[in-house]
């Protein structure tokens, strides 16, 4: 064997051994996260998926799980209440997410303009987003009571009192209010970050060209903000698809099912109605929808990544 080839060989084996060492290190470093995701996400998901194929037969301690094929899915999708819940959840998200993000964007733009005491106004908008959703639910639960201050104000203005949470027409919009009061300031934070990153030279160029604020917004701010806006829209959708707290605390899905969203439906089937298999089926439907949205969100992040 000649000298050169020995050198090449040792070099090569050093490389493979370093690669192997890398793989071992990677495994050690990744193991805790992989175990966590396995036990906390994959196992329960598979368990839930498996249990959707079974039915509980009998009552109490004598109950046993019997294989039922796709019966649970058939039951669920032929239930008009469930179909209503699914449609309502989608419609709810089609309204609340664009509204929240549009308002968050409007407020973010307003709060990045040069105006006196800007920091103070910005903080005021930001304060509610430090309040957990349960706190917002309590605040609006009291404020929108029949004898609460909002109706007090309406009456003082000569308008009639509104039922809010107790009316099938107004309950869901009231829940949107509960979620938006804390949500808008939160998303505004992300958007302000994005607005600050818009290239200042573009604004200077626009100002040289004599473009007014309105035009500048449409032709510079908005296109530059495409990615952050899309990101917060998807992230907001992920959060609102599993909205649960105000429904459970304020309306219990009512009146007349008008606030029953998918997450609450899964909860109620499992715990209130003691139908864990149907609850799991509902959960599975929700998870599949979530997975689809999250994959979109991940793609958005990845594009950011390769820029």
């Amino acid at each position: 064997m000649r000298k050169g080839s020995v050198a090449v060989q040792t070099h090569r084996s050093a490389r493979t051994s370093s690669r192997r060492k890398n793989a071992v290190t990677a495994l050690l470093f990744l193991a805790p996260a992989l175990v966590a995701i396995g036990l906390l996400r994959v196992v329960p998901f598979l368990g839930a998926a498996w249990s959707t194929l079974y039915k509980r037969v009998g009552v109490g301690l004598l109950a046993e799980q019997k294989f039922a094929g796709l019966d649970n899915y058939v039951t669920l999708f032929s239930d008009p209440l469930f179909r209503g819940t699914l449609l309502r959840t989608v419609a709810f998200n089609l309204v609340i997410n664009p509204v929240q993000i549009a308002l968050a964007m409007a407020v973010a733009v307003l709060m990045t303009r040069t105006i006196p005491l800007r920091g103070l106004w910005r903080t005021a908008v930001f304060v509610p987003c430090t309040i957990p959703l349960v706190g917002s639910s309590i605040a609006w639960g009291v404020a929108l009571r029949g004898d609460g201050p909002v109706n007090g104000i309406l009456q003082a203005l000569g308008l009639s009192s509104q039922p809010f949470f107790t009316s099938p027409q107004q309950a869901l919009p009231s829940i949107i209010l509960v979620a938006s009061w804390v949500g808008i300031g939160y998303w505004m934070l992300f958007l302000i970050g994005g607005l600050n990153d818009v290239n200042a030279e573009l604004y200077e160029a626009a100002s040289m060209d004599g473009a007014n604020s309105w035009r500048t917004f449409w032709s510079i701010t908005l296109p530059s903000m495409r990615r952050p806006l899309l990101f917060v829209l998807v992230a907001d959708t992920v959060a609102n698809f599993v909205l649960f707290v105000p429904v459970q605390l304020l309306t219990n899905g009512g009146p007349q099912e008008s606030t029953t969203l998918l997450m609450f439906d899964a909860y109620r089937r499992t715990y209130t109605y003691s139908q864990p298999n149907l609850g799991a089926t509902s959960t599975l439907v929700l998870t599949v929808i979530m997975l689809a949205i999250v994959v979109v969100q991940f793609r958005l992040l990845k594009d950011e990544d390769s820029r």
Partner: peptide, 11 residues
């Protein structure tokens, strides 16, 4: 981990 935990909280 991005799938909100709520989605599988019940199982």
């Amino acid at each position: 981990f991005m799938i909100p935990f709520e989605a599988i909280a019940i199982p």
